[in-house]
Design a protein around this nucleic acid. Structure first.
Length: 419
RNA sequence: GCCUCCAUCGUCUAGUGGCCUAGGACGCCGCCCUCUCACGGCGGAAACAGGGGUUCGACUCCCCUUGGAGGUACCA
């Protein structure tokens, strides 16, 4: 089995394209199977080196490797011209205004055999004699694809359903050349939340955007694999090997799927929490360009869904943050200043400084004042973090250290007297 | 317009004629846990588009309608 992924370099790799790449990759993991990456760059206008690099970048990030390529379709022009000449010679094609058209009989039909959809019949009277070469001699997409897949020995063409309508044309070219078409499998399209074909309008529709938003490649891979088929009625989390073992083209769904960012987020959270702390720390330090994040990561990991959740949640552990006025107004009332005062006094004499002693000291304050726990803990939280949201309060105070904690509480107490 | 594809909870899916008073997951609602936010646990609402057939029996097979999508370039 030989499959291929043949993106046209129009910019960022869409998750639809990523899913197509993944399914091909899964197929290529089997015995005697390989994947060829071919860039469909015959449209010079949009085929820039930058665009090509974007596609490769996205594939590498997703850890989808290939066995052959990347090949440039444009560079195969001599082979394409050879095929055009042969078609002209046999009379299967003819010149028209300088361009070359394939002769399509008025009668009959061309049948496309698709693994996912079965036989699909296209009546010839609905297909015109289509152009296979421009008047300047350059080959067109349908010809280039058919010839490339043939020459490269591609056995299974697995691509998006948007290519289905073009398939009979490719089959006709192959047959005119006396060749057998490959096996086809047209995957259902991926739609945005509005049910329309995925486009740049649908934020987070590209792999690079997902990356920037703090998603993990392994989570993205797992999630997009699920858009189009079930791998096991009992579970949804799989390693790539497990996905490859269970994947079957025959079982791929026929209907379009809508990309659900919420579910991806959930998947990402699951993967994130299972990451080794060192691993997560390394990824975050690369993302933020900072060092020494390990202590903060240890506290924040269980509350993160994406990598970008880290900074808002744990920045206060790394450096002082501005006070969020809303957080202040919400918490610093009803005797909060008195409670904070008591908490400060207790923390000032905790010995030795550590998680257990800090917790005991703060809980003792709660008991002594006979108030609800949150009446002490929330003011402390806001004082040290500037926010009502943070990792566990005892862990946070312990990690911050006595000196820094007391200074921040003092700043908060000053703020009381200023207002 | 013409051609083609598709149709199970809001979403992703399981279901391949009786196992279905339709299962799971995300999301949503309620409760629990609880120092906030998450996580986690428990429970709940939520679907076979409609109409004809076929069959002893249809979510599953066929047809029509409706709805959605893709294509229809000297783009890919």
């Amino acid at each position: 089995m030989k499959v291929r992924f043949a993106p046209s370099p129009t910019g960022a790799l869409h998750i639809g394209g990523a899913r197509t790449a993944l399914y091909n990759w899964l197929l290529a993991q089997g015995e005697d199977a390989s994947l060829v990456l071919r860039i469909e760059d015959t449209d010079r206008e949009r085929s820039t080196p930058e665009n090509v690099e974007q596609i490769l970048d996205a594939l590498r990030w997703l850890e989808l490797d290939w066995d052959e390529g990347p090949l440039s379709q444009a560079e195969r022009r001599p082979e394409h011209e050879k095929a055009i000449a042969a078609l002209l010679e046999s009379g299967a094609a003819y010149e028209d205004d300088g361009a070359v058209r394939l002769r399509v009989p008025d009668e009959g039909e061309t049948v496309v055999t698709d693994v996912i959809r079965g036989d699909i019949r296209f009546p010839h009277d609905s297909i015109d004699d289509f152009v296979i070469a421009r008047s300047d001699g350059s080959p067109l997409y349908n010809l280039a694809v058919a010839i490339d897949d043939l020459d490269m020995g591609v056995t299974h063409v697995v691509r998006g359903e948007d290519h289905l309508s073009n398939t009979p044309r490719q089959v006709m070219i192959l047959k005119a050349l006396g060749e057998d078409p490959p096996v086809y499998a047209h995957l259902p399209l991926l739609h945005g939340p509005d049910g329309k074909k995925l486009s740049k309008r649908h934020g987070a529709a590209s792999v690079q955007e997902l990356r920037e938003q703090g998603y993990l490649p392994e989570a993205v891979r797992n999630y997009i694999a699920l858009l189009g088929t079930g791998f096991d009625p009992e579970r949804e989390f799989f390693t790539s090997d497990e996905l490859a073992e269970r994947f079957s083209l025959e079982r791929v769904s026929k209907s379009a799927a809508i990309f659900d960012a919420d579910k991806l987020r959930h998947f990402n959270g699951r993967y994130l929490r299972e990451l080794a702390p060192d691993d997560l720390t390394a990824r975050l330090e690369e993302l933020t360009g900072r060092d020494g994040l390990a202590p903060a990561v240890a506290l924040a990991q269980e509350k993160m869904q994406t990598l970008t959740d880290f900074w808002p949640l744990a920045a206060f552990l790394v450096e002082r943050q501005d006070m969020d006025p809303k957080a202040w107004d919400k918490v610093m009332k009803d005797g909060a200043d008195q409670n904070l005062q008591k908490a400060r006094a207790a923390l000032a004499v905790v010995e030795p400084w550590g998680l257990e002693p800090v917790e005991r000291a703060l809980r003792d304050v709660v008991e002594e004042l006979d108030v609800k726990p949150k009446q002490v803990f929330q003011p402390v939280r806001v004082a040290i973090s500037g926010s009502t949201i943070s990792p566990g309060i005892f862990e946070s105070v312990a990690a911050l250290g006595r000196e820094e904690t007391l200074e921040r509480i003092d700043l908060a107490l000053e703020r009381f007297s200023q207002t």
